[in-house]
Amino acid sequence: MAAEKSSIKIITLIAADGSVFEVEPNIVKEMKTVQSYIDELDQNTVSIPLPNVFGNDLAMIIEYCKKHASEEETKEAKEEFDFEFVKRMKSDDKLRLLQAASYLNMESFLQFMAKAIAAEIENQSVEFVRDYFQIESDFTPEEEAELRKENEWAFK
C-alpha cells in the first residue's frame, strides 16, 4: 500500500485561522481526507492546509485521535476520556466538530459526535431543536397545528 511506502515523519496541519499543528502519521490515519493526500507523496515532511477547520476544533480532534491511536491506553480509559471530552463541549462545539469530522472524513469520530448530539436532543421539544440547530420553521401556523394534531400521541 502507498501508506506503507510513504516516508513522511511529520505532518503539519494548518487550520482555517492559520494555527499550525505538527503531528505524527499515526495521528492522521483516521482523517481519510488528509491520509489520501499524504499517500501520494514521497518526502519527509508535508504541510496541509485545512481551510474548513478552525484551530480550536483541530486541537480537540488531534487530542481525540492521540488518545484513540494510543496502544497503551485501556478500553476503559478511552471510554472515560470520551465521556469527559463530550462533557466539556458546548452544543456549538459539537456541531462544528461534526462538520469538521465530515470534512476530514473521519468515520468513527463522526459517529461519536452524531451520537453525542443525538443524546443531547433526545426527548427535547421542537422549539429546543430549532434553537439548537438555528432552524427557522417554514411551516405556516396552520400547517404546524395540523401536523401536531395528526401526531398528537407523540407529544403526550
Binding site: A114, A118, V126, N151
Partner: peptide
C-alpha cells in the same frame, strides 16, 4: 449530517421532530 444524528433517536422523539421544518 442531520440524518446521521436523527437515525439514533427513538420513534416518539422523531414524530415530534417532523414539526421542526
Amino acid at each position: 449530517l442531520i440524518a446521521e444524528i436523527l437515525k439514533r433517536l427513538p420513534v416518539k422523539t422523531l414524530v415530534q421532530f417532523k414539526c421542526v421544518c
